[in-house]
Write a protein that binds this DNA or RNA. Structure first.
Lengths: 360, 360
DNA sequence: GACACCAATGAGATCGATCTCTTTTCCATT
DNA sequence: AATGGAAAAGAGATCGATCTCATTGGTGTC
């Protein structure tokens, strides 16, 4: 191993800068930059000399300096409540893939649904001068931090949420329609007592009425279900509508509560994977067989739902594609596109085998 | 469309800089920096004036400039094969949480197990001058890009992988022991025909022998299983050991292959969640009941495994904690700690109800 | 041979915050 | 009143790449 030069250890030496490359190639910084950056005009010979020098010194451009000069970081910030949620996760893959292929990096921050952490996350991202922000806001009331102040004009696109009265574009799915379709399916199979198990922010505990600061996605699902009930001329039984924080123990408690009603619902629409797991666990406790004693539909597909017995019916949302479209919208704004326009993608009801037909 | 900076719209104006705050407060840049940065000495009065000016202009520090000056970005790079994998995901949560509480941001890049993308990801992160790198390397042969060249001394810690002959510390789990324990459990329940379904890089397809560039985690699981076989005096049947790419179709194909053997294995150790799903689907196809006709143990727990019927036995790995420890090790290196030392956390065998006792 | 013109390169400013090294201010003491 | 000395604040350099605006050299034409 050569490892020449004073340093005993290659790593210990400081990283080579452009000026060192220039010196070694016997040209000016400007020329070296032209040769490496592939702009302007340079002789073939100069090109070669600079390339060799860069190679020899293992030169890598300092992106900080470049960003400082250019005013662009080629980075977007992504602020989500919970990356481990399967919906968010697939979306993030879409976001990362789409932004990567547009030459952007994605900086993903997790807030656990806490507005304070969200505020902090957005502040940090703005300080890092990201070119755009994709946010899943935890609240639709505390939104002051979403509209960047003077000069902090990095465009913001909301993800899986919309907020009225806020001039921010959203990328969402048609949850109202999907939820309504799910209820319709239950009704078509003869169900009249239908429960709703809706997931909200973890700090809410579980309760009957809609929590004060419920995000749009959940509100839409509730509204869609109500529309479904209305379609069938069914009255809403408040005892069969339960909101729970999206963590295992609360989901379980809420599901137990639902199934402890008498009469008990014969079908449950679960608002997310946690609610579904809660419902399954609660049903197991009192020996209800899914697809016979209790029918289930859940929001958001996951690989295991298909191998579960019986295979579980779900509302599939185009998670990955949603991420891609969000990036595409955001980058068009980064590029200066003024005209706004939210994006709504359809959700699909996939009926596997967890909805029983019951005697009418 | 003038968008004059006269300022009907705060966002259109350029972001305030320190010099503007200084001017408004009637002090020099240096003094303003001292007041905002909370170092050096300033009069109470000056402190107040500067704070007010900053407030009025909605000043936010430019982190790029700060990083350029300080040489630190307070950012670590995380390069993983697949964020959507449940193991990786929980680890990432641990990584993000631990680094956040140490004041660091995490830049997570996905490689899909492709060495070329991994190389690219590391290059980009180094250009962004991250202070440290946490990598789940896709290969243990192509590793030249892991040891940063001269001056690119951002320390690297390997995650869930170790590579011999490379002076890089690792944070891993004791997979050898866990795998051996799983086999022992099968044997204790009377099993003699035990299959192995090991997940590898997607491009491998599925095959009998160990693929040429198998990562350490998988190799350890295979070796541990072999040790388990040896403990019981069992010979290894190559037809019962199958390697498959970690995607649904390959996992299914490999599982079908295993179950098509005659005699067929009565128990299968699945190397990850994809392999488990493949095994479940293949078993379903030929009407084998889990926990009776076929016993199963899988690596890595997931919330649904407990509500599955029967509840599935697993090797639990301390994913979140693994992420935390990795960050802690990495940051100690970032802080200049020279002495190296890999970390190995134990994995726990959790026996639920998917291992049947069969006649001896 | 003189002039124009283009190709190739260099010098220096710029991005914004920080930090060192002065310089000024102010108070206390003799 | 003069001087020492600390406290407070300012001037200017620095981090590294890029870009504008010269400047150099060379070729072609009249």
């Amino acid at each position: 191993m050569g490892e020449s030069d004073g340093g005993r250890d290659g790593k210990a030496r400081k990283a080579a800068r452009l000026i060192e490359v220039a010196r070694l190639a016997n040209v000016s910084r400007a020329t070296a930059a032209r040769a490496l950056g592939g702009y302007g005009v340079v002789t073939q010979d100069t090109q070669r000399k600079v390339a060799e020098a860069a190679q020899a010194l293992d030169y890598r451009v300092n992106d900080l300096a470049r960003s400082m000069r250019s005013g662009k970081t080629l980075t977007i910030g992504v602020v989500v409540a919970d990356i481990s949620n399967s919906f968010t996760l697939n979306s993030i893959r879409g976001i990362i893939d789409a932004s990567a292929s547009a030459g952007y990096q994605s900086l993903v921050l997790n807030t656990d649904g806490d507005v304070q952490r969200e505020r902090e996350a957005i502040r940090v991202l703005r300080e890092k001068r990201v070119d755009g922000l994709l946010v899943v806001p935890a609240s639709h009331l505390e939104v002051d931090h979403l509209a960047g102040g003077r000069g902090h004009g990095a465009p913001v696109v909301l993800f899986d949420r919309f907020i009225d009265d806020l001039a921010l574009d959203s990328v969402i799915t048609a949850d109202f329609e999907a939820s309504r379709a799910a209820i319709n399916l239950f009704v078509d199979h003869g169900h009249r007592r239908i429960g709703l198990l809706l997931g909200t922010a973890a700090h809410h505990g579980h309760q009957a009425g809609e929590p004060p600061d419920t995000v749009s996605a959940v509100r839409e699902r509730a509204r869609g279900a109500m529309a479904g009930f209305a379609d069938a001329g069914l009255a809403v039984n408040p005892a069969w509508v339960r909101y729970a924080g999206s963590v295992a123990p609360m989901a379980l408690a809420a599901a137990r509560h639902l199934l402890a009603q008498s009469p008990r619902p014969t079908a449950i629409l679960a608002g997310n994977e946690e609610m579904l797991l809660g419902a399954l666990a609660a049903a197991e406790e009192i020996d209800l067989t899914i697809g016979r004693d209790l029918s289930l539909i859940s929001f958001d597909d996951a690989p295991w739902l298909a191998v579960f017995r019986p295979p579980l019916s779900v509302v599939q949302r185009p998670t990955y594609e949603l991420g891609r479209q969000a990036v595409s919208l955001l980058l068009s704004k980064v590029g200066g596109n003024r005209k706004s326009g939210s994006i709504v993608l359809p959700a699909t009801l996939v009926n596997r085998a967890s909805v029983a037909r019951i005697g009418s």
